Computed example of a mutant assay.
Amino acid sequence: MNSLLVSFIGLLCVAAVLSAPAENEPVPIVAQESDIQPDGTFKWSFETGDGVKVEQTGQPKQIDQETAVVLQGSASWTDNEGNPHQLTYVADENGYQPQSADIPVAPEVPPAIARALEYNAAHPEQDGEPQSQ
């Protein structure tokens, strides 16, 4: 009985593997470029056969007591539904700053809450004090 059960489960596994969609073919790289300079600046890019394009540049920048690499880049692609997407970004002393129509935008802060936040910022000495009744 156990061998029959094991055989049946084995056949189910084989059927599941055979009925699964075939793996996607590898996507070819149709263009690629890379340039690294002795001073630390660089640029690279690539494009794939399915239309993905990615590029990035970077250069060292003195920020306070450290040397950091400042980056700029972009990526574009088309999703499975045929919708185009594009992303650009900068990464520097102000952090990662992406820009894209695909990035959700927070709703505007209601005026009453904005006034309350301004009041709190202008009166930090009142933070944490118990209110008198």
Rank of each mutant, 00 (worst) to 15 (best):
S19W: 08
Y96V: 11
A112L: 05
N80S: 13
G10N: 10
N24K: 15
A101H: 05
D79L: 08
E33N: 15
T88A: 13
T48V: 05
A101T: 14
Q99M: 09
E108R: 00
T88Q: 15
Q86W: 00
R115Q: 10
A68C: 05
R115L: 07
S45Q: 12
W44C: 12
S100Y: 02
V30M: 10
S100M: 07
A91G: 08
G40Y: 05
A112D: 15
Q59L: 04
P28H: 10
H123C: 02
D102R: 07
A106Y: 02
A116F: 13
V27H: 09
A122V: 09
A16K: 01
L18W: 09
G40I: 04
Q62T: 08
I103E: 05
N94V: 03
P98G: 06
A16S: 08
R115W: 00
L18G: 02
G58W: 01
Y96T: 10
A121S: 10
A114G: 07
P107E: 11
V69M: 12
E47C: 05
Y89V: 03
T88D: 07
Q72G: 03
A20D: 02
V27P: 15
F46S: 11
V14Y: 04
N83P: 00
D79G: 09
Y89T: 02
V90P: 03
S45H: 03
T41R: 14
Q59D: 06
Q126W: 12
G128V: 03
D79F: 07
N120P: 00
I113H: 13
P107V: 07
H85E: 13
A112E: 14
Q59N: 11
P60Q: 03
G95Y: 11
G51P: 06
P38T: 04
K61N: 07
V109K: 09
V69H: 04
D79Y: 11
Q65H: 06
V105E: 12
N120F: 07
E47N: 06
V17T: 04
D102P: 07
Q62Y: 01
Q86N: 10
G73A: 15
N94P: 10
V54K: 03
S45V: 08
Y119E: 12
G58Q: 03
P26M: 09
E47K: 12
T57P: 01
A20C: 00
W44Q: 14
V54P: 02
I9C: 00
F46T: 12
P124L: 13
H85W: 12
Q59I: 00
L87G: 10
E33S: 15
A122L: 08
A75K: 03
Q97S: 02
I113K: 14
Y89G: 00
I113W: 07
H85A: 14
G128N: 07
S100N: 06
V105F: 00
E33M: 09
E125K: 10
